[in-house]
Design a binder for these strands. Sequence first.
DNA 1: TCAAAAGTGTTCCTCATACACCCATGC
DNA 2: GCATGGGTGTATGAGGAACACTTTTGA
Lengths: 237, 237
Amino acid sequence: MIIDENINTDLRKIEDQFKSAISVDCVIFGYDEDYVDLQALTLDCNMSPYEGQFSLVGDLVQPNENLDEAAQRILLERAGFNDVFLEQVKTFGSIDRHPKGRVISVAYSALVKLSEFKIASENPHHPSWQPFNHLTEGNMAFDHFEILQASIQYLRKHILTLPVEYMLPNKFTLSQLQSLYEAILNEPLDKRNFRKKILKLDIIKETKEYQKNVAHRPAKLYQLKRNRKKDAKEAIS
Amino acid sequence: MIIDENINTDLRKIEDQFKSAISVDCVIFGYDEDYVDLQALTLDCNMSPYEGQFSLVGDLVQPNENLDEAAQRILLERAGFNDVFLEQVKTFGSIDRHPKGRVISVAYSALVKLSEFKIASENPHHPSWQPFNHLTEGNMAFDHFEILQASIQYLRKHILTLPVEYMLPNKFTLSQLQSLYEAILNEPLDKRNFRKKILKLDIIKETKEYQKNVAHRPAKLYQLKRNRKKDAKEAIS
DNA sequence: TCAAAAGTGTTCCTCATACACCCATGC
DNA sequence: GCATGGGTGTATGAGGAACACTTTTGA
């Protein structure tokens, strides 16, 4: 018994020594033509002192997985999302950012289509989409609001080189695309200038189809030109 | 004895579990008007299997220090450099990037003036300035060449918003500044266009002094306008 | 015929680029 | 007087910003 206690004490010492851990936090932005507002994926935090607040989708990195792999796994395990194009944004390492000890967190971010990433209602982590503008320093756990801010800033800065069209249906109108840009940038854009710029980027092509059953002149539908996801990956490296 | 061995075995198990660590690697770029070439700060690596290769200035992050603080401390301890403006670049976390176990490394980068950051010859870590272009995948330890590449890419991309003038003497000529830009970008620039662009940036001001004792028309000397270091810090956030 | 969104062109300004010659000094 | 780098202006084209009216459809 005494021996066991000694062992435990020693173990605890070691644990203290190594009480720093690495985690990944994923900032997933969601959008859908019908929603208007940009959404962000959150979990319900049940860790003291943050009970009832929102947290990002995060977990510890395992010893046998790369950071990028960890991000994919965590997103699958906690939110049920597969095959998402994640990018590293920044690393957060303040001493006291986590109440349980030293946790250094690498932030990743991605863009998804709400209609394709429905949340399973029985998920024990209670993931949910929250309107981006409703998330505040006050209702987010840990330093996750700061991470959210860094991610939206990254997204806004790189909006022209990120595959944001993946947040839209396969075929979409230019107005839908413009609404998406406006949701991300949180500012109105000029229609004519927007069209000129997008068409010059040479990433989408028009189809021969038009909207149907709309109470106004039907809009032409557009499609992606190539594999923009792959392009984006290559462009970033 | 048996007991002790058991304890050690248990400790080792725990150590294995927690054998992931966090480090910071600093990529310090150095320049001096007389050198022409951009330099990078390296240490002599003596860890197998990288003996004789160059490494970046890095070390483990302590449990009680923030990442930014760790970068400052490590740079001071290993290279003797104080008060350097460091910026986080990217985090590297491949499973097998370090032979001794799982080490996740946060890369930081900074710009310094060679003449102000002389290396103490008795330094046990053997820091040295290496011409940037001489560093290769082949002569750098770990994944440090990859980190170096990410850092120079970051520097080139942000050259207009980073306080690169801090790599020059207090008073400098526009030609000296142009040479610095050319060293960083590794490409020649047009003299007239360069001057127009820099002067429009409104970050330097002319003095009433001129070069002396040069065998050609003496150049006007310029100075920084404000605290560009502070400006840069605010601009990044 | 009305409401609602689609679609379209021009002007102005700023900025990037390309490019060549005279100027002041030390030797 | 000559070698050396300092210093300057202009023309052209691309891209961003501002701005208003006509078209097509369903109801």
